[in-house]
Design a protein around this nucleic acid. Structure first.
Lengths: 257, 257
DNA sequence: CTTGACCTTGACGCTGCGTCAGGGTCGTAG
DNA sequence: CTACGACCCTGACGCAGCGTCAAGGTCAAG
């Protein structure tokens, strides 16, 4: 007759695990000896090994209980289902591996590769790090909501970076955002240049991309980020409204053409 | 400003998860509005998405906390370690899949394929199901302790099954085990045949396999299983001792040659 | 004013055990 | 005979990552 420790070492499990299986009704409680110790026979070893075999195959203990008492057909069906689950878990982990492989570089945290490339291009072009960070945060928000549209946005944005006039404008906005005060006298001139660019872009963009999938919710959030990021944001929006345009992330014409 | 529900839906997580991250210190508690509601800004969305990105990559939350504050070198090291873990988990599940694939047939629960083949051969040879079951349980015990020795044992046992004299003897022991009483008068004659076979095998086996890796502990357990399985077991052991042999699983000569 | 959809804190539940705490028991050695 | 280490017992809490009540308070719309 075996003690619980001997039984456990036989099946390669811990004593605690054996008691746990008793508690869960997977393994019947054996008789006790005079001093209250559990005493097991060889049948218990076989039962315990069966439990471990299923458990080690990744079967949850609740299923193990059913399976030990199942007929061959039920057993086969259960095995198939468990195999599907294991396959799914493997695929999940393979996705995770890809994901963390992309995380090796800092920006890619939560961003698709084309966005990382776009931010890298900004750095190459000499944009200040703070502005790149702000851009990154904004695109993280977009990527979370509209992952499918990221390639489209990034294609559009990269094209804008290659236009010398726009590049100059973006750089100046960056400088303004992080170095100017809210009432800087140079802001109206900046707003003029901005409006000129908007009006030049407006027609093109509409033709090229059709309806923008961006939701009002997201637009609002991105605008809020901008307003928080720099004190000039609020003033710039005012100046734009005076010139017939409302918004920031998504511009709408309010005045005459 | 966002409520907790809006924040959560933005990052694709549940409200409960957000509160949990607050509790764990992953996400800072934001300010409250007049009625005590948490109010979030866009920065919180970005932080939350970062947390989820890491968590979805299979990083435990305790590591997420460290990683959010880690420098690029630490981050890269951590990513590598996590990737190793994921790979290990994938390999583990692939083993599990193999294991449960083997479980499709009933006997293979906790038995290697060669043992399953041996039991199948017993069935082909017409051994009664009860005897096959008893054999199976015994070999489950052996396989748990000495998996590496199973091919050797099975080769030896299969050879014995192909010997007509031994086959006849085993079949008769099977019949005796499940149909005779402890004091059946035919037992002494069975013991004589058994001893004759043992003495014929004894020399051969010693030469062929050298030292048996089986431990005393395992021998004792297997003997106990035999004694529990059938009332004739105890009597048979007595008869063997009278004839100069002790034991069952592992026989030792006690008398003269 | 009511309804339904939100928000708050607090507490328990799930899996598969690990790990104390606070005892009793067994076998062997001195 | 006693002491010691290695066992055994029950009971309870802890872990990760939330899900899910419970028992309220708040808000916007009809």
């Amino acid at each position: 007759m075996l003690t619980i420790g001997q039984l456990a070492s036989y099946a390669g499990v811990t004593v605690r695990a054996v008691r746990f299986y008793h508690q869960k009704g997977l393994l019947p409680e054996p008789g006790r000896d005079a001093s209250g110790y559990r005493r097991y026979d060889a049948v218990a070893v076989v039962e315990l090994i069966r439990i471990r075999t299923l458990a080690e195959a990744g079967v949850p203990l609740s299923r193990v209980r059913e399976l030990l008492a199942a007929d061959p057909d039920e057993f086969a069906a259960a095995v198939e289902e468990i195999d599907h689950r294991l396959q799914a878990e493997i695929r999940e982990r393979q996705r995770h591996r890809k994901r963390i492989a992309q995380l090796a570089a800092g920006d890619s945290l939560a961003l698709p590769p084309e966005a990382v490339a776009y931010l890298e291009r900004m750095r190459q072009l000499g944009f200040p790090e703070r502005m790149v960070d702000a851009e990154r945060d904004a695109w993280i928000l977009v990527a979370a909501r509209l992952p499918a549209s990221m390639p489209m946005y990034m294609t559009s944005k990269r094209a804008q970076l290659e236009d010398p006039t726009l590049l100059e404008l973006y750089r100046d906005i960056g400088t303004a955002a992080f170095e100017w005060e809210r009432d800087d006298p140079r802001l109206p001139a900046l707003a003029d240049r901005l409006v000129a660019s908007i009006e030049a872009l407006y027609e093109e963009e509409l033709e090229a991309y059709g309806a923008d999938p961006m939701t009002d919710e997201l637009v609002e959030l991105l605008d809020a980020t901008f307003l928080q990021a720099t004190p000039i944001a609020a003033r710039l929006l005012e100046l734009l409204e005076e010139r017939g345009w409302r918004g920031w992330t998504k511009l709408e014409r309010t005045g005459p053409r």
